[in-house]
C-alpha cells in the first residue's frame, strides 16, 4: 500500500514539475532515503520490544564524523571504515540498552539523556571542524549508479532490510524479540533471557544507526557537529516505523514496512519542496506525517489489525498474522 502511495505522490509531483522525474532525480531520491531507511530498520527493532530510541541521531552523527574525518585525513576505503562505524553503533547502543535494562530508566528518558551526551561527544569529536573534502572514491560511491536509477547506496539499505527481515522471522533471536515485545512478563516466564534480548535490541539499533552514519557521509559527502540531530532523523525513523505498520506497544510489525516508509517519507518531503512550498515548512511536513502515522497506528490498535491487513482482507487475500506487516 505504501508503495502505491509513494508512487502516487511521485506521479503527482512529476506531473506538476516535470523535472522531478528526471532519471538522476529518482536515483538521488532513493539514495538520500537510505540513511533514514537503515536507521528506521534499527528503530523498528527497538519499537518491537516496546522501546524507543531517540539517541540514534547523534549515534549516526558520531559514526559519520568519525569515519568522515579519517577518510578526509588518510584516504582509506569505505569498506575499511565499516567495522569502525558498526563498532561505534554497537558500543553506544549497548550503553542505551544498559540504561534501559539494568538502570531501568524508561527508554524515552534514557535515550533522551544519551541523546544529549552523545550529541556532546559528537561536538567534541568535531571540535569545530566539519567533514567537507572526502576522497573521490567515496564521492563516486555516493553519487554513482550501478544500474540506471539504482544507486550503489541502495545496496546496503536493501541488504540490511532483507537480512533483518529474515533474522526477525526465521531466527530464535528474532522470535524472542517479538515474544518480548508482545508480553515481556510472559516471555520471562517462558524462559526467554529478557534482559539479554532487550539489550540486544538497543545494540542492534545502535549498530544500524552507526552503519547509517557511514552511509550518510558517503551519500551526502559532508558531516558536522549536528549531523543527524539537525534533521531530527530519530523522529523521522519513529514515524517510518509507525507508517510501516509497527506499533509502539511492541510485538507487532516488521522492518520491510519501515524501509518503504523511509522512501515514502523522503519522496513526500522532497515533493513538498519541489511543489514550491518554502523549505521552512519541511519540518511541519514531518510533523503532519507523524500525526497521520500515529492516527493510523491508533486505528490499527483499535481495530486489532493493521491497515494493510484490513486492505488485504478486503481484497480477499489472506496471510497469517505474524507475517511481516505491510509492505
Amino acid at each position: 500500500m505504501l508503495v502505491v502511495v509513494t508512487l502516487a505522490i511521485f506521479g503527482l509531483t512529476s506531473a506538476a514539475q516535470p523535472h522531478f522525474a528526471l532519471q538522476g532525480n529518482i536515483s538521488f531520491l532513493l539514495a538520500s532515503a537510505m540513511p533514514l531507511a537503515v536507521v528506521a530498520v534499527g528503530e523498528t527493532v527497538v519499537m518491537l520490544v516496546r522501546g524507543i530510541d531517540l539517541s540514534v541521531a547523534p549515534v549516526l552523527g558520531i559514526a559519520a564524523v568519525s569515519t568522515g574525518f579519517i577518510a578526509q585525513d588518510s584516504h582509506v576505503s569505505v569498506l575499511s571504515m565499516l567495522p569502525l562505524a558498526l563498532a561505534i553503533g554497537i558500543g553506544l547502543g549497548f550503553v542505551n540498552g544498559l540504561f534501559v535494562t539494568y538502570a531501568r530508566i524508561p527508554p524515552i528518558i534514557a535515550t533522551l539523556g544519551t541523546f544529549t551526551v552523545y550529541g556532546g561527544i559528537e561536538q567534541l569529536i568535531c571540535n569545530s571542524r566539519t567533514v567537507v573534502t572526502l576522497p573521490t572514491s567515496w564521492i563516486n560511491l555516493g553519487t554513482h549508479d550501478f544500474l540506471p536509477d539504482v544507486p550503489y547506496i541502495l545496496v546496503p539499505g536493501v541488504l540490511v532490510t532483507i537480512a533483518m527481515a529474515l533474522i526477525l522471522w526465521r531466527t530464535r533471536w528474532g522470535r524472542s524479540i517479538y515474544a518480548f515485545g508482545a508480553n515481556a512478563e510472559a516471555a520471562f516466564r517462558a524462559g526467554i533471557r529478557v534482559k539479554a534480548i532487550e539489550i540486544s535490541a538497543y545494540t542492534v539499533c545502535g549498530m544500524l544507526a552507526g552503519l547509517a552514519g557511514l552511509i550518510y557521509v558517503v551519500q551526502v559527502g559532508s558531516a558536522g557537529y549536528n549531523t543527524g540531530s539537525e534533521i531530527s532523523i530519530q523522529l523521522q525513523a519513529i514515524a517510518c516505523g509507525l507508517i510501516g505498520g509497527t506499533t509502539l506497544t511492541g510485538g507487532k510489525g516488521g522492518v520491510v514496512g519501515s524501509f518503504f516508509a523511509a522512501i515514502f517519507l523522503t519522496v513526500a518531503l522532497e515533493g513538498v519542496i519541489v511543489a514550491g512550498i518554502a523549505y521552512q515548512w519541511q519540518s511541519a511536513g514531518v510533523g503532519v506525517l507523524l500525526l497521520v502515522a500515529i492516527l493510523i497506528d491508533a486505528y490499527q490498535n483499535r481495530q486489532g489489525r493493521s491497515v494493510s491487513e484490513a486492505l488485504r482482507s478486503v481484497l480477499g487475500g489472506h496471510k497469517p498474522v505474524q507475517q511481516e506487516a505491510s509492505s
Partner: peptide, 18 residues
C-alpha cells in the same frame, strides 16, 4: 483520538517550529 502525547506534541513542536 487517544493518541500518545509524546508523538502528538513532537509533531506539534515540528509544526510550531515551521
Amino acid at each position: 483520538f487517544k493518541l500518545e502525547s509524546l508523538l502528538v506534541t513532537l509533531a506539534g513542536g515540528f509544526i510550531l517550529n515551521s
